[in-house]
Simulated scan of single mutants.
Amino acid sequence: MRIVSWNCSMALYKKRHLLDELAPDVAVLQEVSKKDIEGGNYPFAAWVGSNPHKGLGVIGFSPGSYRMTEPGDRGLPWHLPFSVDGLNVVALWAHQLDKDLKYVRVTHKIVDQHARFLGTGRAMIVGDFNSNTVWDHQHRGRNHSMLVDKLRGIGLDSVYHRQHQSAHGAEQAKTFFHNWDRDLGHHIDYAFVSSGVEAKVTVGEIEHWLPYSDHMPLVIDLD
Results as ranks from 00 to 15, higher is better:
residue 1 M to H: 03
residue 4 V to A: 04
residue 6 W to K: 02
residue 7 N to H: 11
residue 8 C to A: 09
residue 14 K to H: 13
residue 14 K to M: 09
residue 15 K to Q: 10
residue 15 K to Y: 03
residue 15 K to V: 01
residue 15 K to W: 02
residue 18 L to N: 05
residue 20 D to I: 08
residue 20 D to N: 12
residue 23 A to P: 01
residue 24 P to N: 14
residue 27 A to H: 06
residue 27 A to Y: 04
residue 27 A to M: 03
residue 32 V to S: 03
residue 35 K to P: 05
residue 38 E to H: 09
residue 39 G to Q: 07
residue 39 G to T: 00
residue 41 N to D: 14
residue 42 Y to E: 01
residue 46 A to D: 14
residue 50 S to C: 12
residue 51 N to A: 15
residue 52 P to M: 07
residue 52 P to Y: 06
residue 53 H to R: 15
residue 56 L to H: 06
residue 60 G to A: 05
residue 63 P to D: 15
residue 67 R to L: 10
residue 68 M to T: 11
residue 70 E to K: 09
residue 72 G to S: 11
residue 76 L to E: 09
residue 77 P to M: 08
residue 79 H to M: 07
residue 81 P to K: 02
residue 81 P to I: 02
residue 82 F to K: 10
residue 83 S to E: 13
residue 87 L to S: 03
residue 87 L to R: 05
residue 90 V to I: 09
residue 91 A to W: 00
residue 92 L to D: 03
residue 93 W to T: 00
residue 94 A to W: 02
residue 95 H to P: 08
residue 97 L to Q: 15
residue 98 D to S: 10
residue 100 D to F: 11
residue 102 K to Y: 04
residue 103 Y to N: 09
residue 104 V to T: 07
residue 108 H to E: 01
residue 109 K to D: 14
residue 111 V to W: 07
residue 111 V to E: 01
residue 114 H to F: 01
residue 115 A to I: 00
residue 121 G to F: 00
residue 121 G to T: 00
residue 123 A to S: 15
residue 125 I to Y: 04
residue 125 I to Q: 04
residue 127 G to H: 04
residue 129 F to N: 08
residue 130 N to K: 07
residue 131 S to K: 06
residue 138 Q to D: 15
residue 139 H to I: 02
residue 140 R to T: 07
residue 141 G to T: 00
residue 141 G to F: 04
residue 143 N to Y: 07
residue 146 M to D: 10
residue 149 D to L: 11
residue 151 L to A: 04
residue 152 R to D: 12
residue 152 R to Q: 13
residue 155 G to P: 01
residue 159 V to K: 07
residue 161 H to L: 06
residue 161 H to K: 10
residue 162 R to G: 09
residue 163 Q to L: 06
residue 163 Q to W: 04
residue 165 Q to H: 12
residue 170 A to E: 14
residue 173 A to M: 11
residue 174 K to I: 12
residue 175 T to Y: 12
residue 175 T to V: 08
residue 180 W to C: 09
residue 180 W to R: 13
residue 181 D to Q: 08
residue 185 G to K: 08
residue 185 G to T: 08
residue 185 G to H: 09
residue 186 H to I: 11
residue 189 D to G: 15
residue 189 D to L: 15
residue 190 Y to D: 06
residue 190 Y to H: 10
residue 191 A to K: 06
residue 191 A to G: 06
residue 191 A to F: 10
residue 193 V to Y: 06
residue 193 V to A: 00
residue 194 S to P: 01
residue 196 G to E: 14
residue 200 K to N: 14
residue 202 T to P: 10
residue 206 I to Q: 13
residue 211 P to C: 08
residue 213 S to I: 00
residue 213 S to F: 02
residue 213 S to K: 03
residue 221 D to I: 01
residue 222 L to C: 02
